[in-house]
Amino acid sequence: MSIQHFRVALIPFFAAFCLPVFAHPETLVKVKDAEDQLGARVGYIELDLNSGKILESFRPEERFPMMSTFKVLLCGAVLSRVDAGQEQLGRRIHYSQNDLVEYSPVTEKHLTDGMTVRELCSAAITMSDNTAANLLLTTIGGPKELTAFLHNMGDHVTRLDRWEPELNEAIPNDERDTTMPAAMATTLRKLLTGELLTLASRQQLIDWMEADKVAGPLLRSALPAGWFIADKSGAGERGSRGIIAALGPDGKPSRIVVIYTTGSQATMDERNRQIAEIGASLIKHW
Rank of each mutant, 00 (worst) to 15 (best):
167 L>I: 14
33 D>E: 04
63 R>Y: 04
194 G>W: 10
75 C>T: 07
234 G>K: 03
224 P>Q: 00
277 E>R: 14
263 G>F: 04
81 R>M: 00
239 G>K: 12
69 T>H: 03
36 D>G: 02
182 A>R: 12
232 K>A: 15
130 N>T: 01
42 V>H: 00
260 Y>W: 01
74 L>E: 10
58 F>D: 15
225 A>C: 03
151 H>R: 09
209 M>A: 11
206 I>G: 11
177 D>K: 02
151 H>F: 09
187 T>G: 04
86 Q>I: 10
171 I>N: 01
124 A>L: 10
75 C>D: 10
253 P>V: 11
68 S>L: 01
231 D>A: 10
193 T>N: 00
219 L>S: 11
185 A>D: 06
121 C>Y: 15
167 L>S: 07
267 T>Y: 12
186 T>L: 05
84 A>V: 10
254 S>M: 15
280 A>V: 02
24 H>L: 07
208 W>S: 10
119 E>F: 11
159 R>V: 10
42 V>N: 04
217 P>W: 09
198 T>A: 10
205 L>H: 07
80 S>G: 06
44 Y>H: 13
87 E>W: 13
25 P>C: 06
172 P>T: 05
282 L>G: 12
201 S>P: 11
226 G>L: 05
142 G>V: 12
104 S>I: 02
49 L>W: 15
261 T>V: 08
69 T>I: 03
118 R>K: 04
215 A>V: 14
73 L>V: 13
122 S>P: 13
202 R>T: 12
112 T>F: 08
163 W>H: 14
159 R>D: 13
69 T>R: 05
215 A>Q: 14
228 F>I: 05
199 L>T: 05
101 V>F: 03
49 L>H: 15
96 S>M: 02
182 A>L: 11
33 D>V: 02
177 D>S: 04
181 P>V: 12
152 N>E: 04
247 L>Q: 01
86 Q>A: 10
87 E>K: 13
58 F>R: 11
178 T>N: 01
195 E>Y: 00
222 A>I: 06
228 F>P: 08
271 R>F: 15
181 P>N: 08
266 A>H: 15
161 D>R: 02
161 D>A: 01
281 S>R: 08
207 D>H: 06
146 L>I: 05
188 L>G: 07
150 L>R: 06
198 T>W: 07
116 T>L: 12
265 Q>C: 10
98 N>A: 07
49 L>K: 13
36 D>Y: 01
151 H>L: 08
170 A>L: 08
36 D>S: 09
205 L>F: 07
172 P>G: 10
154 G>Y: 04
113 D>F: 09
206 I>H: 11
101 V>C: 09
116 T>N: 03
167 L>M: 14
64 F>A: 11
209 M>Y: 00
113 D>G: 05
139 T>R: 04
168 N>A: 12
273 R>A: 10
285 H>A: 04
282 L>T: 08
47 L>T: 04
192 L>E: 06
181 P>Q: 02
242 G>T: 05
93 I>T: 15
27 T>P: 08
105 P>A: 05
146 L>E: 05
91 R>D: 01
128 S>M: 01
107 T>R: 01
255 R>V: 02
112 T>G: 10
113 D>L: 08
191 L>Y: 07
195 E>G: 09
95 Y>N: 01
230 A>W: 13
259 I>E: 06
264 S>M: 12
83 D>I: 01
226 G>M: 05
97 Q>A: 11
45 I>N: 06
187 T>K: 00
242 G>H: 04
155 D>G: 12
24 H>M: 12
88 Q>C: 07
121 C>A: 02
35 E>N: 12
114 G>E: 04
108 E>H: 11
37 Q>R: 06
34 A>V: 11
61 E>F: 14
179 T>F: 01
30 K>F: 10
275 I>G: 11
200 A>S: 09
59 R>H: 01
79 L>M: 05
191 L>C: 15
188 L>H: 14
192 L>P: 03
263 G>R: 05
226 G>C: 14
185 A>R: 03
66 M>E: 07
137 L>D: 10
251 G>L: 01
283 I>W: 12
261 T>A: 04
71 K>S: 06
40 A>I: 00
34 A>L: 03
29 V>W: 15
74 L>I: 11
66 M>N: 03
181 P>H: 09
54 I>G: 05
62 E>W: 15
37 Q>K: 09
255 R>D: 06
